[in-house]
Amino acid sequence: MAQLIKNGAPAADTWTTLELADGESPESVPLPAGDVIFPLAVWQARKAEIAARPRIGLQLQSADRVEDVADDLASFAIIAVHFPKFVDGRGYSTAALLRQRYGYTGELRAVGDVLHDQLFFMRRVGFDSYALKDGKSLPYAIEVGFKPFSNTYQGATDQAQPYFRRRA
């Protein structure tokens, strides 16, 4: 269980994430009830079955392409982007594309190897919830992790205008 941060505060995780066990296939895995975050392959294989649910979550791995779900984004209440290792930076582009190009407005959660020192970058590209890795200080992450810098040079999701366009 990771420690969830949402709206700048600790939060309870109300979602279950479906994981395929060995031998299970996207086509045949039993779909649990409740609020579930589905792997991309399960969503693609079982869209018709899943679509009727009131709230749907999607998990993207770092190699998954946003383009492949671009038309479905309105279906999701949450998209979880998985960081297998914190040094795998593909999830930052995934998030930027979801927010900036495809207009995704639901919850965007960073999961996996999510650490204090990457929260600032994650917030900037468009994440708004964070499953901080266990064993790391949640209060300290909330207190200082998001704002090591008081301003930024580049345009990104949180502030589309680069600093040079915001100068007085």
């Binding site: 930076g89 930052y92 970058f121």
Partner: peptide, 8 residues
């Protein structure tokens, strides 16, 4: 400097 998308 601190480009958020390309730090990793």
């Amino acid at each position: 400097t601190f480009h958020p998308e390309f730090a990793f």
